[in-house]
């Protein structure tokens, strides 16, 4: 098997001529964690559904684990594990019953179903809740069970469609840890769709950004961020009237950043943190006091903005490139 997932010009057109996926090319290597990042409606889930044989492509071709998704669907299904959006789990069944059912679906014997269920329940920390109906589980428990269900037959490729949407931070971290463990210990290829930048950043070796059914950028998170350019120095003058003056000072160090929060001045800073002190001195010399200062490293959101002109939903929505991480300081 050369590629775990290979898609060429993959298209899905729905009734009414709506092209949810419009010529997607993908190459995911065995053992890789590939992050598929995009806003709601970008075509992430439709792509996953085609790769998981739940939806027939209307154009292009794709293979998963070396099998064609259209003509060798059954072989694809034997090779993949799928945890779809919203953890579609029957709330009236218990965790153990669902694992047993999943085992039967994948052709496991009764004894294998039992031992696999025990092992996976233990692995995802649900042994104590195994006999409880899933309707009583928390969101995090459901997601962990969903992951366990996808692993019943030890798939070589695992599709996780927005696995942490709606989870609290603790549950999210626990799930990330499990995905990492799965990838490093079992060598499972993971195709992960997400609208969370941090998730893609933390988990994925490579990231594809999809918008309007097309891949607009692809590479390692570091490569993509490097494409955006230098870090941005964003300052908020203590006196809002001095914003323009502050901007004039900052553009001496690098090009102006136009997408920034109101009332702030911002410029790219070639050299990054090493030149912050110099910029601050220049502001001092111009008599400008700052209420806050932020050195904003490029994020995948900035990559998204650079490629599409828009921000990802739920990630700042028109706010600054400084809205997230960076060194924060406060002077005078």
């Amino acid at each position: 098997m050369n590629e775990a997932i290979l898609a060429e010009g993959l298209v899905r057109e729905f009734k009414g001529g709506i092209r949810a996926v419009d010529g997607v090319d993908l190459q995911v290597r065995p053992g890789e964690v590939y992050g598929f990042l995009g806003p709601n409606g970008a075509g992430k889930s439709t792509t996953v559904r085609m790769l998981a044989t739940l939806l027939r492509p209307t154009g292009g071709s794709a293979t998963v684990a070396g099998f064609d998704v259209a003509s060798e669907a059954k072989s694809v299904r034997r090779s993949i594990g799928v945890a779809l959006q919203d953890a579609a789990i029957d709330p009236f069944m218990t965790g153990r019953e669902l694992l047993h059912l999943q085992g039967v679906l994948h052709g496991l014997s009764r004894a294998e179903c039992r031992s696999t269920a025990d092992r996976l329940l233990d692995r995802v920390g649900l042994t104590e809740a195994a006999e409880r109906r899933v309707g009583t589980y928390s969101g995090g428990m459901r997601r962990r069970l969903d992951l366990a269900l996808a692993l019943v037959h030890e798939p070589v490729v695992l599709f996780l469609d927005e696995p942490t949407t709606g989870l609290d931070p603790t549950s999210r971290l626990a799930l990330w840890e499990e995905v990492r463990r799965l990838n490093t210990e079992a060598g499972t290829t993971v195709f992960l769709t997400t609208q969370y930048l941090e998730e893609a950043d933390q988990l994925a070796g490579r990231v594809g950004i999809i918008d309007g059914g097309r891949i607009v950028a692809e590479g390692t998170p570091q490569q993509l961020k490097a494409e955006v350019g230098d870090p941005a120095l964003v300052i908020t003058p203590a006196d809002p009237e001095r914003r323009d003056a502050a901007q004039e000072v900052l553009v001496r160090f690098g090009p102006e950043v136009e997408a920034r929060p109101p009332g702030t001045a911002a410029a790219r800073l070639p050299g990054g943190a090493a030149r912050v002190a110099e910029a601050v001195r220049a502001l001092d010399e111009a008599g400008i006091s700052t209420a806050s200062l932020d050195l904003h490293q490029p994020t995948l959101d900035d990559v998204f903005v650079a490629k599409t002109g828009r921000r990802l939903e739920g990630h700042g929505g028109g706010e600054s490139p400084a809205a997230g991480r960076g060194k924060r300081g406060r002077r005078r």
Partner: peptide, 16 residues
């Protein structure tokens, strides 16, 4: 209900 809730996807994404 199973189709609407996505449970059927679990069944048809398996080789059963």
């Amino acid at each position: 209900r199973d189709i609407e809730g996505g449970f059927v996807d679990r069944l048809i994404s398996s080789p059963a």
